[in-house]
Computed example of a mutant assay.
Amino acid sequence: MRIDPLIKSKHPFIIDGGLSNVLEEQGCDLNHKLWTAHLLEKNPEAIIQAHSDYLKSGAQCITTSSYQASIPGLIAIGYNRDTAEKLIMKSIQLAEVAIKRSLESGLVLFQPLIAASVGPYGAYLADGSEYHGNYGVTDEILRAFHLERIRILDRSNADILACETIPSFQEARVLSDLLNHVSKPVWMSLSCRDEQHLNDGSKIKNIVSIFRNHPKVFAIGVNCTNPKYISGIIKCIKANAGNKKIIVYPNSGEAYNAKSKTWLGISEPRLFVKMAKEWSKLGAHIIGGCCRIGPEHIRNISKVLVKN
């Protein structure tokens, strides 16, 4: 199995950071309902470069640009179903190109993994709903939304399905059922408001219990969450997750304004490294970053956590 290096690693396994911030630094305009997925057709080379930046920084796994690339979302802006499916699959292909180029150039001396991003229903709404998780929809709507994309990504060349930024008990429960039928290993990453609760107010320990014995989920954790809560969340997950790996990739702790699509605050790579060392000691097996965490952060934690 290609994820054996992740499972058997003696050191924390390092994944990448946020995709949007790297693309914005390239000059890409992400003020679009599809966010980073908008570039799958408009500027695929920018996505390849962003992946390459993380690989060069030491990321052992890169996460695809499919977070907001859902079938309903793509159809809603005018793509037909066939094109929508091809664009979702293209997110995997761009990651493959980045890996191929990095290996051929000698910048990377190992075979990185690809995690196919499965974003929450709130990402499709593009109104910041993933930050509260109270969608007000039925299980059937959530199931239909996720099913097609999961099927597409499950038959791709990705190594892992990364269900991420999941903010509600309802959505986690629906995904748990759908994931029983996939062929790839899965990491399940929640979005939390504090050390004990998801964004919708559900208790983290109750969500973790859903996946504790799940046959396809190998790791449970948290992303797009303020780093000040991560240590407490690790303790909570560790107490309830059995033998599952623990994955953490928080944001920078800055405040996001969903209306203006801007961030307020600063991020400090040195502080992030200090925190990452603590997360590792507490039991996190897989560590990376989300929004506003960039290649410099990943480079620094890779040097400290992998080589020491």
Rank of each mutant, 00 (worst) to 15 (best):
M1A: 15
D4N: 13
H11C: 09
F13I: 10
I14A: 10
D16H: 06
L19C: 01
E24S: 05
E24N: 07
Q26H: 07
G27E: 10
C28P: 00
N31I: 07
H32F: 13
L34G: 03
L34W: 08
K42P: 06
K42M: 13
E45M: 12
Q49R: 15
H51L: 06
K56Y: 13
G58K: 02
C61A: 15
I62Y: 14
T63C: 14
T64W: 10
S66V: 04
S66P: 08
Y67R: 00
Y67F: 14
S70I: 12
S70K: 13
I71W: 13
G73N: 13
A76E: 09
A84P: 11
K86C: 08
L87E: 02
I92H: 14
E96P: 04
V97Y: 10
I99Y: 08
R101Q: 11
L107F: 12
I114L: 04
P120M: 02
P120R: 10
P120F: 03
Y121S: 03
A123L: 06
A123F: 00
Y124P: 08
S129E: 13
G133R: 03
V137T: 01
D139F: 04
L142D: 12
R143Q: 06
R143S: 15
F145V: 02
F145G: 06
L147G: 04
L153H: 11
R155I: 05
S156I: 02
N157H: 06
L161Y: 07
I166V: 15
V174F: 05
V174I: 00
S176E: 05
L179F: 08
L179A: 00
L179Q: 01
H181S: 10
M188P: 10
S191I: 12
C192K: 00
C192N: 01
R193Y: 00
E195C: 03
H197T: 15
L198W: 01
G201A: 14
G201T: 07
K203Q: 01
I204K: 06
F211R: 02
N213Q: 10
P215D: 07
F218P: 06
F218I: 15
A219C: 04
N223R: 08
N226S: 15
P227T: 12
K228D: 12
Y229R: 10
Y229I: 11
I230N: 09
I233A: 00
K235Q: 13
C236S: 15
A239S: 15
K244E: 05
K244S: 01
I247C: 06
S252T: 04
S252G: 13
A255H: 03
Y256G: 10
S260P: 00
K261Q: 14
S267I: 05
A276R: 07
K277D: 05
K277L: 08
E278Y: 11
L282P: 09
H285K: 14
I286S: 08
G288Q: 06
G288I: 09
C291E: 09
C291S: 13
C291R: 15
E296G: 03
E296M: 00
I298K: 01
R299H: 14
R299P: 02
N300M: 14
I301G: 12
K303M: 04
